[in-house]
Design a protein around this nucleic acid. Structure first.
Lengths: 190, 190
DNA sequence: CAGCGATCCTAACAATGTTCGGGACAGTTC
DNA sequence: GAACTGTCCCGAACATTGTTAGGATCGCTG
C-alpha cells in the first residue's frame, strides 16, 4: 500500500481542507474567510494549501462541483409519485429545500458571488448533468418542449433567489411553490 | 454664491466620481476596478476619494440607489396599454430589457456580488419604491393578492437571471417572456 | 543506504482598502 | 488687510489579502 497510501493521504487531506472550507463558508459566508484562516483551521500555514489546490478559486471550484453532485444525489434519492403534477411538486420541493438549506452553497451554485471565478469544464459538467436529469424527468411526464424546461429553471431559480435574498430562513416564497408548479403545469397542457 | 458654490462643487465631483465608476464597472466588471484606478481616472489619488465617499462600499451604495431610480424612471416613462395582459407584457418587457441592458448593474441590483455589501436604508428604500410601483400597477389591473406579486417578482428575476448568467447578450429567455406573462395571467383568473 | 519527491515552513511580493498627518488654498471673521 | 477655519488633496504608511520562492524535513523507492 505504499504508492497508494501516498496519494490516498493526499486525497484525504484535500477532502479535509474542503470540509473545513465548507464549515467556514457556512459560518462566516462564502467569501468571509482567508487562506490563512482556512490553513490554521486545518493545522497548517497558508502556502501549504498550495500543495493541494493551485489557487483559492480551485477550492471554490471543487466546492462548486460537490454542490451539484449533492443536488444530483438529493434528486436521485427522492422517490417520485406517479401523478405528473404531484411529481412536479416533488421535484420542485426537493430542489427548493436543497437550494435554501445552505445560503453559501446557493451563492456558489447560482449567483456569481466570487469575482472572477468561473467553474472549470469538469465542475460545469456536473451542473449540466443536473439539468439533464430534469430534462429526462420532464420527458417522462410528456413535456418535451425545450422552452418549457427553460421556463421551469427560471421559475425555480427565481423563487429560491427571492426567498434567500429577501427573507432568508423564512417561508414566504416556499409557500408559493405548489401554486407556481400548478401555474406552470396548467400552461403546459393547452 | 459662496457657501452654495462649495457644496455644489462637492456634489458635482461626487457625481463625476460616480459616473466614472459606472464606466469602469461597465467596461471591466463591477468589482474589476480598484480605488487607485478610479481615482486616477478622475484625476486624483485614492485617499482623496474619501473626501467624497467614506468607503468603497458607499460608492456601490450610491450606484445601487441610482440603479433603482433609473428603473423607476424607465417604468414611469413607458406608456402602458389598457388591456390587462398587454399591460403586463409591457411591464415585463420594460423590466427585462432594463435589467439585461447592463450586466454590472444587474449584478449590483439583484445579485449579492460584492462581499459584505448591504444597501443602506435610503438606498434600499428606492428598491422598495420600485416594488410598490408594481403593486399599484397590479392593483389597477385587479390583482390584489400579495402572493401574486411575490410570484411575479420571482418569475421576472428568474428569467432575467437565467438570461444573463447562461446566455449573456442572447434572447433565449427573452423569447419566453410573453409566454411567461400569459402563464402568470392565466393563473390569476380562476 | 542513497536519493528523490512530497510536504511543510518562513520570508517576501504585489495589490488591495483605508488611515494619518500635513500642506495649499478659498472663504469667513475681526 | 490679517488671522482664522475648513475643504481639498497628497505622500507615506498600515494591515490584510492571494500567491511565489527557496529551503528544511521526512518517508517511500531504487
Amino acid at each position: 500500500m505504499s504508492t497508494s497510501s501516498r496519494t490516498e493521504r493526499h486525497q484525504a487531506t484535500r477532502e479535509e481542507i474542503l470540509s473545513v472550507a465548507w464549515a467556514l463558508s457556512t459560518e462566516k459566508g462564502l467569501t468571509g474567510w482567508s487562506l490563512r484562516e482556512l490553513a490554521a483551521a486545518v493545522g497548517m500555514r497558508a502556502p501549504s494549501l498550495y500543495v493541494y489546490f493551485a489557487a483559492k478559486d480551485h477550492i471554490y471550484d471543487a466546492m462548486f462541483r460537490h454542490s451539484y453532485e449533492a443536488l444530483l444525489d438529493a434528486g436521485t434519492s427522492a422517490d417520485l409519485p406517479d401523478d405528473p403534477r404531484a411529481r412536479l411538486r416533488a421535484i420542485a420541493g426537493t430542489f427548493f429545500d436543497f437550494a435554501t438549506d445552505n445560503p453559501a452553497r446557493l451563492q456558489l451554485m447560482f449567483w456569481r458571488v466570487i469575482p472572477g471565478f468561473t467553474p472549470s469544464p469538469e465542475a460545469y459538467a456536473a451542473s449540466v448533468q443536473v439539468v439533464e436529469r430534469v430534462r429526462e424527468a420532464f420527458e417522462q411526464i410528456g413535456i418535451t418542449d425545450p422552452a418549457a424546461l427553460d421556463l421551469w429553471t427560471a421559475l425555480m431559480s427565481g423563487l429560491v433567489t427571492q426567498q434567500v435574498s429577501n427573507e432568508p430562513g423564512g417561508e414566504r416564497w416556499r409557500r408559493l411553490l405548489d401554486d407556481a408548479v400548478e401555474m406552470f403545469a396548467s400552461a403546459q397542457v393547452r
